[in-house]
Design a protein around this nucleic acid. Structure first.
Lengths: 336, 336
DNA sequence: TTGAAAGCGCTACCAC
DNA sequence: GTGGTAGCGCTTTCAA
């Protein structure tokens, strides 16, 4: 049986109030009693219940993290960064995979609320913004990470997706490509949309246009979708010489498709990804990609939600971090 | 402000006991009152506090999961499997990355205990078995996954590491290799040890021996360690024609080393991994590896710890699942 | 300094 | 059927 504050008090011959004081290092206690109580706590293996403390108004020291899928390397890295920072502040993390389904988001949101978490970090897209209304109304701190929610007054930490798209386009453009395609996630994923927008605009500035039929969207199984859509692209009479993929998983699918079709990367086809996950370092050819500063993003999101950042965050501050082009071996000049 | 059971009771003009009954679907209430209360709960956006309920003896519906590193794809997959099953039972998951450090294990263990989780699934190695004593004493359910704790009476779900090692050896042996090396994790990781034991014994049955200097151990950064150790192996005068890596990350390091040294895989060197993570499907050549049934392992571990498995689990039952050889392109017959 | 006591939100038992 | 009430383990006044 677990020891309670009463057990300690009785054993030490003091009141529970005294024990509470030494637990929290508050109030005044004689060094003698203090030592005695500490001793008893140690002997009984007493650990104060966070649950009970939380009920009296203290915090639960628990944060929730919503991601599309924790087994997706990008989000696993985000989760690790968040966890590290959270742990640093003495908190723990409840992780929830939403599969990008609003219905699951809703379920997890109320679940986390019922568990009285001290804040929720959302790294998954949300279609129906109304989902957040209930928890915002209960003034549970919410911060978005890696995905924005346009128009909502919510603290957000993202990479500059638009700029990332531009970087990708500029890289391809500078290599001399004139026929480029895009592999995106589900159309509802805002980060994909932004990346495409940046990509498209950079192309436009170069006098090129991105035809609609050169933009393919995927769904659930990103690698498979990437492969299928890339194959499709490669079957066009006028096939693209480069593909910008909105994440590394899609890019891997593209790489697989190319291999299967006997198309050499990067000689005949350049492929560029996004995220710079561990996967990008492992493929052959290694994947040129746009890096997101996952560590910083995770750390920032936590600091913001815990308001350990010093200044009072203003209502709708959005922190946008710079993406970085990582050139590896999957991109090169087009054949002619 | 969040609504409480009192708010609902007042608003509905009933006692809190009545509200509690409809929340839990217990006791007897007239359909009329019941409807009225439901209505008020809805209107107020009332969600019962798990914290308060837990304090009265009910469960917290939260489980803890300890893994070495959530950003390691293998454990991310395990985590996803566990999460899915846990969610299925209405629970949520607190995930903790231990970096294989006992000190962190200990910290997380007491933290989870203080948060009154209903059980802890441990997927990380533990050197000092005494660490578990405190929580076992408090009779908090504990289950090990993917890693065993020899000699302890703890429910365990693992793959047959020994057999996995054998499978790897047999595959290489059948290909005709006679000079094989091993890349392992840190020597204290028991799963690695078992895999090596199986590998070694299968070799012995074939009349071969595994020289000690052909077994290299890594530490923190698995890919980097794998690369370094593989390079070292390849510099021996009598270098091995095949390397068995205790996980895919190490295998990737080996692949990278080979490429850097201009050694062709699988023509000049066969590489076989373990885990069958997403990484194995992505390398070039794709990695031959030993698959672990992560989904089943995760599901089983949850069912066991929640005792939803029907039968009373006996004190020290160990569930050992069969590994599976997945042949891809990184293994072949040796040159001569 | 120290301790008695009033909650925190909810469950469960018991009397009506 | 229904509601009063005693806790659950802990924090926090507030007297003493």
């Amino acid at each position: 049986m677990k020891a309670t504050i009463y057990d300690v008090a009785r054993e030490a011959g003091v009141s529970i109030a005294a024990v509470s004081q030494v637990i929290n290092g508050k109030g005044k206690i004689s060094e003698e009693r203090r030592a005695k109580i500490m001793d008893v706590m140690e002997r009984l293996g007493y650990k104060p219940s966070v649950i009970a403390a939380a009920l009296t108004g203290k915090k639960t020291y628990t944060l929730g993290l919503l991601v599309p899928d924790i087994s997706n390397p990008f989000f696993a890295e985000i989760a690790r960064a968040v966890e590290d920072r959270v742990d640093h502040h003495g908190y723990s993390l409840v992780i929830c995979s939403t599969d990008n389904q609003d219905e699951r988001v809703e379920r997890y949101l109320t679940l986390l609320q019922q568990k009285s978490v001290d804040g929720i970090i959302i790294g998954t897209g949300i279609e129906d913004k109304e989902l957040l209304a209930p928890i915002l109304a209960k003034s549970i701190p919410v911060t978005m990470i890696a995905r924005g929610l346009p128009g909502e007054a919510i603290q957000t930490v993202t990479v500059d997706d638009y700029e990332g798209g531009r970087l990708a386009a500029q890289h391809l453009l500078s290599l001399g490509h004139t026929s480029m395609a895009v592999l995106a996630e589900h159309p509802k994923v805002t980060s994909s949309q932004e990346r495409i927008r940046g990509f498209r605009e950079a192309m436009a500035e170069s006098g090129q246009t991105l035809p609609e039929y050169f933009v393919k969207s995927g769904g659930r199984d990103l690698i498979k979708d990437g492969k299928r859509n890339a194959s499709e692209l490669m079957r066009y009479a006028e096939r693209p010489t480069a593909i910008f993929c909105c994440n590394d998983l899609l890019a891997i699918g593209a790489l697989q498709a190319a291999r299967e079709l006997g198309i050499s990367v990067p000689r005949e086809l350049s492929v560029i990804g996004f995220d710079n996950t561990i996967l990008a370092t492992v493929t052959n050819p290694a994947l040129t990609t746009i890096a997101q500063p996952t560590e910083r993003m995770g750390g920032l999101a936590v600091d913001i939600i815990l308001q350990k950042n010093g200044e009072q965050p203003d209502e709708s501050s959005r922190t946008v971090l710079a993406p970085e082009l990582i050139v590896r071996q999957s991109t090169a000049a087009p054949l002619r």
